[in-house]
Simulated assay, not measured.
Amino acid sequence: MLRIGVDFGGTKIEAAALLPDGTFLSRHRAPNPGDYVAALTLVRDLIARVEAEARADGSIAEPPPTIGIGSPGSTSPRTGLMRNSNSLYLNGRTFREDLQTVLERPVRLANDANCLALSEAVDGAAEGASSVFGVIIGTGCGGGVVVGQRLLDGANGIAGEWGHMPLPWPGPDEHPGPPCWCGLHGCLETWVSGSGFARDFCATTGRDLKGEAIIDTMRAGDPEAIAAFDRFLSRLGRSLAVVANLFDPDVIVFGGGLSNVGEIYERLPGLIAPYVFSDVWEARLVPARWGDSSGVRGAAYLWG
C-alpha cells in the first residue's frame, strides 16, 4: 500500500509518497504560506501531486494511500484543538479535522519530533533499539518517545515535550532564564535550540550571528564562540541527563540544524554522565540517518 507523509514545518511544507519498505516514489516541498487556509490548500495540492507521480507508471494501484501529518504542537484530547505550536496560527484550530475535510480522507497527525523519533526507530539510526528518544535541535527544540517501535503519545498527548521543561541544575546566571513564547521563563527551547544558542551568544558578546556562523567561528578558534559552544553543550548535557534519569533510553537520536555538528557527539556523553543517577551510562547518541527526511518518513509511518 502506498503511504503519504507530510512534514508541516514552520518555513516549508513537504509531502512524500513512499512504498511500505520506505522507498521514496515522489516528494515535493514548498514554502509555508503562513496562513491557515492557504496552508490547508497547499497540503492538499502537494499530496495530490506526489500521489499522481507515484501512480504515474500504473504499477501502484488502489486502495487510496494512508496519510500522516507531522506538525509542530499537538492536539488536545479534551478539545480536539491544536495547542503548543510555534506556528502560532495553528493553535486553537481543528487542524486534523480540517485536513480531513479538505482531503476527503482519514488523517493521522503527530508532533514533528515524534515523527523524527518514529522514523529513526523503525529504519533509521536507532533501528533495533527497544527505547528511543528523538531530539530536534533547530529553530526550536522538541522530543519524541518511541518504545518497541511504537510512538508514545501519553495520556494527554504531550509525551516527549522536552523543549518546555526548565533548564536543570541552573547556575546563578541561568535563572529565571529568558522569556519563552509559551509564556514561561527559562524553557529549554530558550537555551538549547539554534535560536537559543544564537540569543545567548549575542547577549554575552553583543555579536549577532546565526548558529551555523557561531560554529564556524568556534572552529576557527574564536574564544567567545568557543565559550558559547561550551555553555550550549553544558546545558544540552544537563537537559538530556533528565531524560536519562526519567526514561533511560537505549538511543538518543538528533535531528534539526545543530544535529550536524560533529563535536556534539564527541563531547556530550561526558557532560551527561555526571548528572545521571547510575554508576554506568552507555546510551548511544547518534545523528538521524534520514536527516531532514526523517519528519516526512515518520509521518508516513504513523499508520504502522
Rank of each mutant, 00 (worst) to 15 (best):
R3H: 13
F8I: 00
G10Y: 03
K12Q: 10
K12G: 03
I13F: 05
E14W: 01
L19S: 09
R29I: 00
R29G: 12
G34V: 01
A38Q: 14
T41Y: 01
D45I: 01
L46G: 13
A48R: 11
E53M: 02
P65Q: 10
G70D: 06
P72L: 05
T75I: 15
S76H: 12
M82V: 05
M82N: 12
N84S: 14
L88K: 11
G92K: 04
R93I: 00
E97C: 00
E104V: 05
R105Y: 13
V107Q: 12
R108D: 04
N111I: 11
N114H: 15
L116A: 12
V122H: 15
V122F: 15
V135M: 13
V135N: 02
I136V: 15
I136C: 10
G138Q: 09
G142A: 14
D153T: 09
G154V: 05
G154H: 09
G157H: 13
G160N: 08
H164I: 01
M165C: 06
P170E: 05
G177S: 07
C180S: 02
W181S: 10
C187G: 01
C187V: 05
S195F: 00
A203S: 10
R207D: 05
L209Y: 12
I214N: 07
I215V: 15
G221D: 07
A228I: 00
S234I: 03
L236S: 04
R238W: 03
N245K: 03
L246T: 15
D248K: 01
D250C: 08
I252A: 03
V253I: 06
F254L: 14
N260M: 04
N260Y: 09
V261D: 12
I264C: 03
Y265F: 14
I272W: 06
P274Q: 09
V276N: 08
W281E: 02
E282F: 08
A283T: 10
S293N: 15
S294W: 00
S294Y: 05
G295Q: 06
G295S: 07
G298A: 04
Y301S: 11
G304D: 15
